[in-house]
Deep mutational scan, measured.
Amino acid sequence: MISLIAALAVDRVIGMENAMPWNLPADLAWFKRNTLNKPVIMGRHTWESIGRPLPGRKNIILSSQPGTDDRVTWVKSVDEAIAACGDVPEIMVIGGGRVYEQFLPKAQKLYLTHIDAEVEGDTHFPDYEPDDWESVFSEFHDADAQNSHSYCFEILERR
């Protein structure tokens, strides 16, 4: 099963200049909980913004210009990325925008964090048809001392 995991502000903004323009430790914990011990696929820009392999996960970098870091697996196509994951129950696609666009048609599940923030962004989550998805989990949280904005975790499964 292919799943996408993303944090989205208003207007589906997911990033600005290779960074997330908010401070939500709870979302980072949600991300870790849902990706640990699963292969993660990301684009080169996302890889560069993280700066290191995510521990406890097979890191697969999709790029037309593969790098030389041998701590991760470099691939040039969506099919190659899927094959590099091996026989696993769930593959997690973690961004960025172009990689989400490439995998959305193949995805069966979306793990979304909806952030109540209007922020400037240069990267967006692809538009998706809500009628194609069923919400199977939703959990709202107010902003607090650690988390700069209110947010809602949601899991959607393709109908």
Rank of each mutant, 00 (worst) to 15 (best):
D127T: 13
V119L: 08
K106E: 11
L112T: 06
H149K: 03
A6I: 15
I41M: 04
L54F: 08
K38H: 06
K109W: 12
E134W: 08
P39G: 05
N23T: 13
H149G: 03
N23K: 00
V88D: 13
E101N: 06
G56I: 03
D127V: 13
R71D: 10
R71E: 09
D116Q: 15
Q108R: 08
K32H: 03
V72W: 13
L8R: 04
A81K: 03
R159H: 12
D131I: 05
H124C: 15
R33T: 14
S138Y: 03
N23V: 08
S64Q: 14
F153Q: 03
V88I: 13
G43R: 03
P25N: 10
Q65K: 05
F125T: 01
K106Q: 15
V10L: 01
G97T: 04
P126A: 14
S135R: 15
R33W: 04
A145S: 08
I115G: 02
R52D: 09
P126E: 09
V93G: 05
H141Q: 05
D79S: 06
R98E: 01
P21V: 04
S150D: 11
G97F: 02
D27E: 05
H124M: 08
I91S: 15
W30H: 15
M42G: 03
E120T: 13
R98S: 02
I41G: 02
F140E: 14
T73Q: 08
V88M: 11
V40S: 12
V119Q: 14
N18Q: 15
H114A: 15
G56C: 05
S148V: 00
W30V: 04
K32T: 03
D127W: 12
R158I: 05
P53H: 12
A29E: 07
L54R: 00
N23G: 10
R98P: 00
L62Y: 02
D142K: 11
V13A: 05
P21R: 01
Q102R: 11
P25C: 05
P25F: 14
S135G: 10
A9N: 15
V136G: 11
L62A: 15
I14P: 00
D69N: 07
A83F: 11
I91T: 14
N59R: 03
H45L: 02
H141R: 04
A6Q: 01
P55K: 06
L54S: 00
N59L: 03
Q146R: 05
